[in-house]
Design a protein around this nucleic acid. Structure first.
Lengths: 234, 234
DNA sequence: GCGTCGGTTCGGCCGCGGCCGTAACGACGC
DNA sequence: GCGTCGTTACGGCCGCGGCCGAACCGACGC
C-alpha cells in the first residue's frame, strides 16, 4: 500500500499541538521568525527550533535567512489548503463549539485564509456576488461569469484570464468551505484579487500577530454600498 | 487561538500509521468491516477496534451495524478530500519515490479517488477533454463548457446542471491534483459522472481490496477510440 | 439450550517522542 | 576585539499512547 507511511508522517507532523499551533499561525501566508513562533506556541526557543527543523525537512515550511533572523512560511499553497481541509474536518467533528470569546469573534468576522478572505465577510461577499450573477457556485466548483468579469473590472479588480479568450467564462474562482461559517466563500484567483484589492484601498487591514482582518470604517462603507453587506454591528 | 487543539487532534488521528492505513483503505468510499480493516492494517482485532472507536468518536468514519458486522466508511466526502490533500503534500515531501512495484504500478495506472478516476487514466482523460475544449482547467478551478456539455450528453454522460440555464457554462468540475502524476485530473460532478459511466459500461472495474481500477479490454478500446488515450501498454 | 464468530473492554507492558537545561555556534552591532 | 541576540546540538526525564493477551458481550445458526 503505497504512500501509507508518508500519509501518517504528514499527519503526525500536524498532530503535535505545538507544531499545529505554528502551522496555524503561518496559514495566512506571512513569514515569521522562529522566536515569534516559539512565543506563539508557548515553548522554549530550542524546542520550537526542533519542530521547525522537522517541518522544514518534510517541506511543509520553507525558511529564508535574512540577517540573523530565519523567516519561516508555509512551503506551498498546497500546504495551506491541506491545513484548511483539516480544520474543516476538525470543526465538523466538534460541533458543540461554545467558545466565543472576543478574539474568536474577530476571527469569525473576517480573517485571511492564506491569500483570500474568510469568515462572515468572506461568505457575505460570496453571497452578494452570486446574487448579482457575477459568479456561480456549485458545491465544489465555481466560476466567474462574463458579466462578473466586466463588473469587477469596473471596480478595479482585473482578472487576467491568461486564456485565449475564445470562451467567455473562465474558471478563476474556487469555493472554499469556511470552517467557522460552514458556508462557501471565494478562493482561487478571484478570492486573492478581492483580498489584495481590499488591502490596497485600506478597506481591510491585517492585524498583527493574528489571522484576523480589521474592517476599516471606509471598508464598512464600501462593502455596504457596493455589496449591501451589513454584518459589522456589535 | 481557536481551533488549534482540534487541528492537532485530527492530525494526530491521521498521524498514527495504523489509523492512516485504515483511512487510506476507506478512501475509495467503500464500507469495510472492522475485521477487514484489522487485517489490512496488520493489527489484532482488538487494536483495530480501539482505533476505529477513536475515528468514529471524532466523526472521521461512520459505522453502520448490519447483522453481527460493523461496516465502517469515511463519514463525509470532506474527509476524503482532506486525506487526498494530505497525500498530495506527502507525495511532494518525499520526491525520491523509487518504489514502483506491481501493486504500485496498478495504482498509478488507474484508481478511484473517492468518487472519481485518478492516476494516469485520470489525467489522460482530463488532458483529452481539455484538448477538445470540453472543459477548461486553471490551476485550482475548472468548468465544463457548453460544447462539452453537449458532447458529453451524446456519450450518455448527463450532467444535470440544476441551474436555471441562463448561463451556458456551469461549474460542474473541480481539478484534483494527482499525488502520483502531479498533474490535475477531473473531480467534482463531472469526475463522478465519468467514473460511474465507465463502471456501468464495464470499461473499468473495481479491484477487490484495493483502490486500483482495472481497465477492461472494452475500456481500452473505448478510451482509445473516444479520447485517443494510449497508456495501457506495460 | 450450546457453539461459533465478530467485535469490544480491560489491564499491563513498553517504546517513542516532546520537553527542558545546559552549552555551543553563528551573525550582527559597536 | 566583545557582548548580545537568535538558533542549534546533546542528554536525560517523563508521560502519553499503541500494542497485545485474556476475558466479556451480542448475534447468528442449529
Amino acid at each position: 500500500m503505497i504512500g501509507t507511511v508518508s500519509l501518517a508522517q504528514v499527519g503526525a507532523l500536524v498532530g503535535d499541538p505545538t507544531r499545529a499551533a505554528m502551522l496555524q499561525a503561518l496559514i495566512d501566508g506571512r513569514a515569521l521568525t522562529a522566536g515569534e513562533l516559539a512565543a506563539l506556541a508557548r515553548v522554549t526557543p530550542q524546542t520550537a527550533s526542533g519542530h521547525l527543523a522537522q517541518l522544514a525537512a518534510s517541506a511543509l515550511v520553507a525558511v529564508s535567512r535574512q540577517g540573523r533572523h530565519r523567516y519561516h512560511r508555509l512551503a506551498t499553497p498546497q500546504v495551506a489548503r491541506m491545513l484548511e481541509s483539516l480544520m474543516q474536518v476538525a470543526a465538523a467533528s466538534a460541533p458543540p463549539r461554545a467558545r466565543t470569546g472576543p478574539r474568536d469573534e474577530q476571527l469569525r468576522l473576517a480573517r485571511t485564509c492564506y491569500d483570500h478572505i474568510a469568515g462572515r465577510l468572506g461568505v457575505a461577499l460570496a453571497d452578494a456576488m452570486m446574487a448579482r450573477g457575477w459568479v456561480e457556485i456549485e458545491d465544489d466548483a465555481a466560476l466567474v461569469t462574463s458579466d462578473g468579469m466586466d463588473q469587477l473590472a469596473a471596480l478595479g479588480i482585473a482578472l487576467d484570464p491568461s486564456s485565449t479568450g475564445k470562451v467567455r467564462s473562465v474558471p478563476l474562482c474556487r469555493p472554499c468551505l469556511d470552517w467557522s461559517e460552514r458556508r462557501s466563500h471565494l478562493a482561487g484567483r478571484l478570492g486573492a484579487a478581492l483580498c489584495t484589492h481590499g488591502l490596497e484601498r485600506s478597506w481591510i487591514r491585517k492585524r498583527a500577530g493574528s489571522r484576523a482582518l480589521e474592517v476599516t470604517s471606509a471598508g464598512r462603507r464600501a462593502y455596504r454600498d457596493l455589496f449591501c453587506i451589513e454584518i459589522f454591528e456589535t
